[in-house]
Amino acid sequence: MAAGFEADEGGASRGRRIAPEARRGRGATANPEGRFEAARHETFDDGWPAEGAPPLHTEVTPERARHIITRNASPDISFDRSINPYRGCEHGCVYCFARPNHAYVGLSPGLDFETRLFSKPDAALLLERELSAPGYRPRTIALGTATDPYQPIERGHRLTRAVLEVLARFRHPVGIVTKSNLILRDRDILAEMAAQNLVKVAISVTTLDPDLARRMEPRAPHPRKRLEAIRRLSEAGVPVMVLTAPVIPSLNDHEIEAILEAARAAGAREAGYVLLRLPHELDDLVGDWFSEHYPGRKDHVFSLLSGARGGKVYDAAFGTRMIGQGPYADLIRRRFALAKRRLGFPEEPVRQTVELFRRPAAVGDQLALF
């Protein structure tokens, strides 16, 4: 039975645990139903040896969206609009706070999130239409807030590249969050936009330990590749932030200073962090992952986390949901601030300009007289 998931009498697990050989190279250990599903499946040990299960393959389904820019009014984040060319993420990061979003399409936040993906092939066309609207007013668009815009399927689909081409043509500011060195493919566009103060990139470096990275984010690039991406983007004049996100108590929190030092040496100009967030189904998913990979640490990790979340596993309150509160959260905050100061990270963040925004003339537009 998968510890961390609710069980019925007799030991049946509602977590829909998937055999290890079938999920090799994946992050989640189970595929529980989403919170909106009426039906529940149960797995149990009947005493017979399990038959070999075929490996899980990645499926990509086109999604015909009506709009591509998503708005938000959250007071504790720095952007009010974002674009996600994909739904779901093949990187398979077990801790990803976006996993519960898969429940909105009737799929599991577990293995479905990393194997049953959706692409938005009209992303660039929709963006051009929305930016061209007469009432549109520019502010920085965040690219990759829910799923990584440079996850493996971007190599073939190239939707992120197409979105960047539109933003560059409109001279529209953008902030990108990724943990993939595939972003270097688009260094030409990014360097051009950086010269106009239109772009900032945040690279997530969760750990420098390749074994830990392989376990908790199995299809994301090696930490060394991410540091190389920071270096090469910085050399091209692109401002880069390093994100130590998430900070996981008793798992990677001891690496904060080392990650910041390595990123600063590679050229990072800013640094940020997020304390592990476990909304909705993520509590059980991460708990089950710990039971398999680090069973001796599970109780300690969740104890520290609940101490930083007001006695709960997760607290969604604005202002504290990203960094927590209490003694442990205060310790992380002070360590992070001291390390930034020691390494010479600037206090003021790089901000993009909106002053250069323009609507390029479309085919058939009447030319201005003057």
Rank of each mutant, 00 (worst) to 15 (best):
A265F: 01
S234K: 03
F302E: 09
F118S: 12
F118K: 06
E347R: 10
H172E: 08
D188I: 05
Q151S: 05
L125E: 12
L131N: 09
M241Q: 15
N84E: 09
G144V: 03
R40E: 14
F97I: 10
R24D: 15
W48P: 00
A245P: 00
L275C: 11
K120H: 10
A195M: 03
E63T: 13
L278H: 13
A236N: 05
A308L: 07
L285F: 01
R129H: 15
W48S: 10
T70E: 08
A50E: 15
D283A: 10
L305S: 05
D45T: 04
R358C: 14
D365E: 13
L164H: 03
F290D: 04
L143H: 12
R334Y: 10
R185S: 11
L198M: 06
K225I: 00
F44I: 11
R35H: 11
V177A: 09
P20T: 10
S291L: 04
L167H: 02
V166S: 01
M1R: 07
S119I: 10
R334G: 08
L198E: 05
C93K: 02
T145P: 09
L243A: 14
Q196D: 14
L107D: 01
Y86T: 02
T115W: 04
R158S: 10
N31F: 03
S13G: 13
T61Y: 09
L111W: 09
V94W: 03
R137A: 14
N197L: 11
G156M: 02
L227F: 01
R226Q: 02
D283Q: 07
L367I: 06
R14N: 13
P152M: 10
I259K: 02
L282K: 01
R14F: 12
P121G: 12
H300Q: 12
Q325R: 14
H293T: 08
D211L: 15
A50H: 11
P249T: 07
W48M: 07
V354N: 00
L126W: 05
P121A: 14
T320F: 03
G296E: 11
A73G: 14
S132N: 08
R64C: 01
A103I: 10
E235A: 13
L233S: 06
P152H: 12
N252A: 04
N31P: 01
P249V: 03
D211T: 15
F118M: 12
P134W: 01
R187S: 13
F170T: 05
G324K: 06
C89E: 03
R171T: 05
S78K: 01
E348D: 13
R309T: 05
A329T: 03
T140P: 03
F370K: 11
R87D: 05
E228A: 07
D148Y: 08
E59G: 10
G15M: 07
G27L: 02
I183N: 07
Q325H: 15
V350F: 11
P49V: 06
G27D: 00
L212D: 05
A142D: 00
I323Y: 08
T160W: 04
F5A: 13
E21I: 07
T58E: 08
G25E: 02
M216F: 15
S234T: 13
I259E: 01
G319T: 13
G287T: 06
A220F: 04
S250A: 15
D253Y: 02
V274P: 01
G106Y: 04
A19N: 11
V60Y: 03
G326F: 06
I153G: 05
R359G: 05
A191D: 07
P349N: 12
S234W: 01
